[in-house]
Amino acid sequence: MSLLEIRNLSVDFQTAHGLFRAVDSVDLDIAKGELVAIVGESGSGKSVSMLALMGLLPWTAKVTADCLAFDGRDLLTMAPRERRKIIGKDMAMIFQEPMTSLNPCFTVGFQITESLKTHLGGSRAEHRRRAIELLELVGIPAPETRLSAFPHQMSGGMNQRVMIAIAIACNPRLLIADEPTTALDVTIQAQILELLVELQRERDMALVLITHDLGVVAETAERVTVQYAGQQVEKQPVESLFDDPHHPYTAALLAALPERATSKRLPSIAGVVPGQLDRPGGCLFNPRCGFATERCRQEVPVLNRGALCHYPLSRGVPQGHPEHQGEDA
């Protein structure tokens, strides 16, 4: 049985213009100790789907799912009090902005021990010892003195390490990292990623890495889910995804990687992710897709060879596409 089972998860936001669907029937299975990446542009619903899982969305969000189970227990039907016993303990999350994610009014030590106190009980001395141990584990020098430091006295990278320490304080079985390196310097980014992957391997902890950096995905993940405009457009193991992307969106993302560029100008995907008021009919990617046909504009695609596309690519050739007849890979 998988650790996390998500079936048909949708999130709707109540807005002035009616309901807006930020996440559209997302499925996800994560096994114990597995590293899965979710990639996509800003606004593709990556964070929202994971925030829904953690129960951290504002009340204007309506979360529906056929199944949202952690370790076989359905989170949606669970009482809030029961759910809070899982959140922060077995299932933890770190965020994009380390500088604002820690409370400026409390010391680092207080913020780490708070989790321990809430979920594990024990004495103050034990909490202190464990907090020092955690800070050491996430690579913070002189952990004893850091306990009494405030977040504003530390750098962004240090704060992100503290966030990680808080998240892993109760030995979670699933850690969700929501763009954990986006706000950090490039040199620090690599260190933080390395730390996360190391923790995942050593502790047999499942890790969901939300990112828009495909380079990060290539180096770390085992499986990848590509999201676009709230929908999962493609799911593949990481090697085959980089080797042979099936969805034109994935292919376009990969083509935009500098290390894959063949021409002098870096290819880009024209346009932006559709918002609430400019959602196209048919396939949501059709206005930006090079292969779009009339069928793409009319008909909503279904999952086809692991991609949400009428003409999934195989070795760069759209299968069954009217203009590419007979060009089999």
Binding site: L56, R81, S101, T118
Partner: peptide, 24 residues
């Protein structure tokens, strides 16, 4: 963001609001 962090720790709403938010 830090209020979201506090909620992500699984703290009771009274603690999130009365301590983490109110102090600020």
């Amino acid at each position: 963001d830090y209020v979201r962090t506090a909620r992500a720790k699984g703290l009771a709403p009274s603690r999130v609001i009365g301590l983490h938010a109110l102090r600020n």
